[in-house]
């Protein structure tokens, strides 16, 4: 008791802080620490299933990691492809979702409808509803396929190639044209992947104090200035959140996870699968660290 009185303010603050995160801390120790240890254990060993049930582990050193990166048929290529996809997609998604959030934050007729529409990809994107659609589709294609409207390829009637050639002849650098084509080709994916980010940005826009805009107006700031000096700094912490979410989301949807999952549950090679998960998790964490470092420097926090 006597000791408690002597505690400095910082210690007391630290203890209060720890009580805030206490439930989570317990949970992490209960569920995740064990998982991580087990995953690391698996990744360094050959996991053998006993016929009597249960598993036996033989230490295998770095063999699993070597196999995953150097010998496995597709893993390293899939890994590189996914990383490149992330680098291309994430800036697009962030730009697109911020723009959409700004548009949706205005008052206009049909706003509720538009917000509902942009929310649909969040519902349909993953999980049970997506599963239901996919399984039914596979069954149709695997069975005596009928050419129903859904599967008939739409012919747009516009020859993209023709326009591309015109641009090339006009002297546009090939790399730029390629990138633009790439981007346009991804628009559907970008829209589908932006639902969550739009909602987060909308919430961020909502929590900007209105007084700041009043001040800006009184000071005679143009709307352009208001955006860059008020809106943008105020939502910048949430840009980081969205970057993190986009990266993680792109990664969980990617073939990397699929490959590791297949290795674990089709060929029952837990060791290799764990090594793959560790490699990809480490890489993503590194990307997040870099992205976080870059954005945090620009982001605006009150403290």
């Amino acid at each position: 008791m006597k000791k408690k009185k002597k505690m400095s303010l910082t210690t007391r603050r630290a203890i209060t802080g720890l009580t805030f995160i206490l439930p989570w801390l317990i949970g992490i120790c209960l569920f995740y620490v064990r998982t991580l240890i087990q995953t690391v254990q698996f990744s360094f060993s050959k996991v053998i299933f006993r016929e009597s049930g249960g598993i036996r582990m033989e230490f295998a050193g770095l063999q699993n990691f070597k196999y995953a990166l150097l010998e496995h048929g597709s893993y390293n290529q899939v890994l590189v492809d996914s990383l490149v996809d992330i680098v291309i997609d994430v800036p697009l998604i962030i730009f697109f979702s911020l723009m959409m959030a700004l548009l949706l934050n205005q008052k206009f007729r049909g706003r509720t409808l538009m917000r509902a529409i942009l929310f649909i990809p969040v519902i349909m994107g993953a999980g049970a509803i997506n599963d239901a659609i996919e399984i039914a589709r596979q069954a149709v294609q695997g069975g005596i396929g009928v050419e129903s409207a859904e599967f008939a390829q739409a012919n747009s009637g516009v020859s993209v190639q023709y326009f591309l050639e015109i641009f090339m002849q006009l002297g546009f650098p090939g790399k730029v044209v390629d990138y633009v084509v790439e981007v346009v080709g991804r628009i559907y994916d970008v829209i589908k992947a932006s639902g969550v980010q739009i909602i987060i940005f909308l919430a961020a826009l909502q929590s900007v104090p209105g007084a700041l805009y009043e001040v800006a107006r009184i000071e005679g700031a143009t709307s352009y200035e208001t955006f860059w000096k008020v809106t943008f700094p105020m939502v910048s912490p949430l840009i980081l959140t969205n970057v993190v979410y986009s990266i993680v989301d792109a990664f969980t949807e990617s073939k990397v996870i699929e490959t590791a999952y297949d290795v674990a549950f089709s060929s029952y090679d837990y060791g290799l699968s764990s090594a793959m998960s560790l490699i990809s998790t480490t890489l993503v964490c590194l990307i997040l660290l870099v992205a976080g470092g870059l954005i945090s420097r620009k982001a605006f926090y009150y403290n």
Binding site: T10, R13, A14, I15, T16, G17, L18, F20, I21, L25, I28, F31, Y32, R34, T35, L36, Q38, T39, V244, V248, F251, T252, I257, A260, Y261, A264, F265, Y270, S274, S277, S280, T281, V284, C285, L288
Partner: peptide, 28 residues
């Protein structure tokens, strides 16, 4: 709040976001 090991603990938050869910399957 600031408390000891805050950065590492927050790193754990990130790890729980990134770690593929099937990796937790067996232990859970």
């Amino acid at each position: 709040f600031s408390f000891p090991f805050k950065k590492i603990l927050f790193g754990m938050v990130i790890v729980t976001i990134v770690l593929p869910s099937y990796a937790v399957m067996l232990p859970l």
